[in-house]
Design a protein around this nucleic acid. Structure first.
Length: 301
DNA sequence: TCGCAGGTAGAAC
DNA sequence: GTTCTACCTGCG
């Protein structure tokens, strides 16, 4: 069925949002296994004009799809908002149809976001896909992301796997986090998984205020301010989050402070204050505008 | 071969 | 409280 909300699927799915790796692409179709009422269902979407063509039409699945691609957000209204701000006015034409790509599974978003810190999009998406394949559940050719208590049992590296399993050759060891290319983030990911399987309940984040949720996420190993904001934005739909990294800092400094170097925490405060509930979207658009308009190349120097 | 990029943790100031 | 440095991997 066609869902009549304008979106650019390719741009949205491949924009590097830390909710999850891109869905599997075959021709013009993107697909993934999504849990609906706890059961894995294969979602297939394709671009149809400005809209999404979705393979399912039952109410719960459609509602889940609406959530993942943020289809209830009024893009036209947002574009009016951008065009009313001189610094942002150019952005919509470079990012037309870009929407939030929200995590169907908040735990996957937590691990993806930890993995994305100090990392490239290409590398963290590859790592998360491998984690799904090693510890998730297979459905047809798709894998769902493991639960926290399953990932909490993962070995950290070849050596630990060799010592604690009955594999006789260390060269054969590949069921461990470091083998997914996560590097020094492996212990953070496992400790975070342990935390969510024993002490912290991710579902409670939804009930919290933004500030409380932010402080709570900072207690998770491997989670600093940038990653906490990504988790809150992409994993829990806190739209006032303004994840601030070096690129957002460069862009904000260029657009709003005449190129003067502003610290990352100040940029975060500025973004939240200035953009309110649009902060998450503005951050998303800023990054892709910089990428596509050539501003990023210019700011590298 | 090496230098560089990228957030966080933990130590040092 | 703020600043410095090590951490891992892929890329140019």
């Amino acid at each position: 069925m066609i869902i009549k909300s304008p979106i650019n699927l390719d741009l949205t799915i491949n924009s590097g949002q830390t909710s999850q790796p891109p869905w599997i692409r075959e021709g013009d179709c993107f697909s993934n296994a999504v849990l609906v009422d706890g059961k894995p269902v294969i979602f297939k979407v394709r671009q149809s004009g400005n809209y999404i063509d979705f393979n399912l039409n039952d109410k719960t699945a459609v509602s889940k799809l609406n959530y993942i691609f943020d289809l209830d957000f009024d893009l036209d209204k947002f574009y009016k908002y951008l065009s009313n701000n001189a610094e942002l006015a150019d952005m919509s034409k470079f990012c037309n149809g870009l929407r939030l790509f929200l995590a169907p599974d908040p735990f996957e978003c937590v691990i993806s976001s930890i993995c994305s810190a100090n990392n490239s999009i290409k590398r963290w998406t590859k790592s998360v896909s491998q984690i799904r394949q090693k510890w998730g559940n297979r459905h047809q050719n798709y894998y769902t992301f493991p639960q926290s208590d399953d990932l909490a049992k993962a070995y950290l590296d070849d050596e630990e796997e060799f010592n604690l399993s009955n594999i006789s050759d260390i060269e054969m060891c590949c069921n461990n986090l470091k083998d997914c290319g996560v590097g020094y983030r492996a212990p953070y990911m496992r400790r975070a998984s342990e935390l969510f399987s024993h002490e912290m309940d991710l579902s409670q984040i939804h009930e919290m205020s933004y500030d409380e949720a932010f402080e709570t996420m900072l207690k998770v190993p491997g989670v600093g301010p940038k990653v906490a904001d990504c988790i809150l934005l992409y994993g829990f739909n806190f739209r006032q989050a303004f994840p601030s990294d070096v690129w957002i800092k460069r862009i904000v400094s260029y657009l709003y402070f005449d190129g003067k170097d502003i610290s990352v925490p100040k940029v975060r405060e500025f973004g939240m204050e200035e953009f309110g509930d649009n902060a998450g979207y503005v951050q998303l658009y800023m990054f892709h505008y910089a990428r596509k308009s050539g501003l990023m190349e210019k700011l590298k120097k």
